[in-house]
């Protein structure tokens, strides 16, 4: 099963490499990884999506918690949560394709953020499945380049991940 684990970690050099190293060292999977500072300058938030049965996920969270730089973590998939990913895609846009791309962009509630005579750059946010669906819809027209941020997420309701 797919899990989204969000981690608050010390904003220290080397902290990220410890988390990433742990996954390769213990033969765990990383499907996507997203890391950025938070409102607290001493903390970074890292969100990793991984796949494994309950035993593997239990080991992943236990080993992450063992890392000295990891302050707190939550498995978002254990409860209701909001999950988002941002993707920038360059698609071919020539002649009649330009309208077709524009229509599909509207259907997906995406935005065209850059235009050239032959290429549209599209920005789209949503969960991973929506982004996949958009790529599939665009593939007959021609996807030239894809940049995805990886999943970021937050739990629904009053619960917060903070110190």
């Amino acid at each position: 099963m797919r899990h989204i684990i969000s981690i608050l970690m010390e904003n220290e050099p080397g902290a990220l490499s410890r988390v990433v190293g742990l996954f390769s060292q213990r033969n765990f999977n990383i499907e996507s990884l997203n890391v950025a500072p938070t409102d607290d300058a001493t903390l970074s938030r890292l969100t990793v999506t991984t796949v494994g049965d309950d035993r593997v996920i239990e080991q992943i969270t236990k080993h992450l918690n063992k890392l000295i730089d990891v302050v707190k973590l939550v498995d978002l998939t254990e409860g209701n949560h909001v999950e988002r990913e941002l993707m920038l895609v360059k698609v071919k846009a020539l002649g009649a394709q330009r309208d077709e791309v524009k229509r599909t962009v509207d259907i997906f509630r995406a935005q065209i953020v850059d235009v050239t005579p032959s290429v549209y750059t599209v920005q789209i946010t949503g969960d991973a499945a929506k982004l996949d669906a958009f790529l599939q819809a665009m593939s007959p027209i021609g996807v030239l380049e894809v940049a995805r941020t990886g999943v970021s997420g937050i739990s629904r309701g009053d619960k917060v991940l903070s110190l």
């Binding site: 050099p13 080397g14 410890r18 060292q25 000295i68």
Partner: peptide
């Protein structure tokens, strides 16, 4: 050396 020993230490500092 911090990189080399990362998987075999409890923690490391520079």
């Amino acid at each position: 050396i911090v990189g080399v020993t990362r998987p075999i230490v409890k923690h490391s500092f520079i």
